[in-house]
Amino acid sequence: PGTGGVIGSFVPPKSVWLHAMKGKGLEISGTFTRRSGAVFMDLNFTNRALQVMSDFAIQFNRNSFGLAPAAPLQILTPLAPNQSTEVSLPLNTVGSVMKMDPLNNLQVAIKNNIDVFYFSVVYTLHILFMEDGKMERQMFLATWKDIPNENEAQFQIRECPPNSDAVSNKLQASNVFTVARRTVDGQDMLYQSIKLTNGIWVLAELRMQPGSPSCAYVELCLKCRAPEVSPFVSQAFEAILKN
């Protein structure tokens, strides 16, 4: 407050993950966030049944990045009919790993005194972007050269902020760090780095025409030794920049 202009990291709006019809009256909406270096699953539980709900617990299936609850689900008082409660569940990334399809899929089981319910959610990969993801410049150049061209993926992102400062600031708030910037033939080029929680580095080149209206697009090129993550990193760029 009072600092104006400071941008927070991207938080997608909550969506319904478990409909009351499928949850015997339990409705769950949620989103994923990254705050102060930690991942959270922010949840809203609503009891749309005619009986009290209690004894809540949560479990994840194995997943691509080892996401797991870092604490038990804390819903301390029973949930009366028509009552809602908000919970922020801290997560860690030291759980069992199994490659999911899509890569960012997470299978969740929630239990209460009535039954056990299962649902799948997808998360935006930015929750895995680490705070120490700014690669040293010399390392960036060497890594860029070292990663083969086959591991390079191109994407277009439309409706971005109107200039490279705004783009860079917005991305940095979600741990996408600008390592260098150049202007060539009237185009702004940003060289950026990201470190995922599992230690994978992603290098990015963003190219944009300065002074274009905000409906302009940027060309995103990603280089990574694990190129299967690139489409999901591109989705995260898109979500951050359009937010």
Partner: peptide
């Protein structure tokens, strides 16, 4: 400003990507 050659290297990279 100390020139460690990295500024120039980034300029060459950007140039080569724009005009391959």
């Amino acid at each position: 400003e100390l020139d460690d050659g990295l500024d120039e290297a980034f300029s060459r990279l950007a140039e080569s990507r724009t005009n391959p």
